[in-house]
Design a protein around this nucleic acid. Structure first.
Lengths: 188, 188
DNA sequence: GGCCGCATGTAATCTGTTACATGATTCT
DNA sequence: AGAATCATGTAACAGATTACATGCGGCC
């Protein structure tokens, strides 16, 4: 049921149109490395899984001069799952480190959906989490537990501050997108 | 080479004297759960590994009325490795959530070593990490990377604030230990 | 009689990742 | 000739955790 998070990124890279594995790996390395690493063979493994569960479809393409490629395209099902993932805030704190920035990146990259909205949703999720942890901290009897709760509380507060930073990044991104669209419009 | 972090906790519980697996699991559950979970069979698996690499030694004990037990005791090698682990700050940020509080807990529980010293070392490690991340942030070209670095910077700053909280906890613990020692002394 | 606590352990599974096998072309 | 780029894919491995098998004794 649970997908490997990099599978969603792959779906994201397939959103603009069909690509082969090697190309997806190139996208991955040039855009997300060195923060998020994915080996070549890993990409192929994930593509196989995505095909087996119907998010992508592939077609063998024989080339005259180059080795044959397998061209992947995203299916309707894949598109839906990707967009659902893209717009949904992450539940686990640990996913804020890579998955969440990846969502923001893909929104900007694909010029899809509204980053500000995602950030706002994520802020709400974190605030709920913060309140819950503070409550549990108050009820907690032992030292070890209190330390762990304190840790979480500090961490979530830091994340809320960081999400404010994300907002300004998002604005820059939005204005940059506007600028790019404007330029494109003027050229046409 | 790399040990499972819970193996060190097991070694810690074996420091005061020999125990059997079931008992270690009870310690684990009563002291560290629900923050750090370890299943029964997991404990047995880890004990097997610890014996294979010489940190613990075991002896079968046949009981008349109860099922036979396997009594584990820590070896000199195990003691050394445990103390080395106990006094060393963690390198990875993610280990601060559970492994580091566990070290503080065990120091207090076993009345070994100086928590304040460990905290001070950890502060230094985090400060180095913070400086390095700030430097890399400045050099970083892409938006995704900057977001990730910002995340790390916020996180480490939160941890440094949390380590200050740990200091006061540590002081409480120290004074509590003194109180306990005093009481013990008065009783004798 | 049935469930809970005591007590152990193996085998399987799951998940993620990498080593390796293959082979053509193009650049130096 | 040798290295780099293009291109794919399988099989294996490693690490962590859990399902399940086993069985006694005491309590209700």
């Amino acid at each position: 049921m649970a997908r490997h998070p990099q599978e969603y990124v792959i779906l994201g890279f397939l959103m603009p149109g069909q690509k082969h594995g090697y190309e997806i790996h190139r996208d991955f390395s040039s855009r997300l490395a060195p923060f998020w690493h994915a080996g070549m063979s890993h990409i192929y493994t994930l593509l196989k899984r995505l095909e087996a569960t119907g998010q992508v479809r592939s077609e063998k393409q024989i080339q005259h001069t180059r080795p044959p490629r397998r061209i992947y395209s995203i299916t309707q099902k894949g598109r839906e799952e990707f967009l659902e993932w893209l717009c949904k805030p992450v539940r686990e704190i640990r996913d804020l480190r890579l998955q969440f920035p990846a969502k923001l990146f893909l929104m900007k990259f694909l010029d899809l959906s509204d980053p500000a909205e995602l950030i706002a949703k994520q802020v709400r999720v974190c605030q709920v989490e913060l309140t819950s942890n503070k409550k549990q901290y108050d009820l907690c009897g032992d030292d070890f537990g209190r330390l762990v709760y304190q840790f979480r509380i500090h961490q979530i507060e830091a994340i809320l501050a960081w999400l404010e930073v994300c907002k300004t990044h998002g604005q820059n991104a939005a204005s940059e997108n506007q600028r790019l669209r404007k330029e494109k419009h003027e050229r046409s």
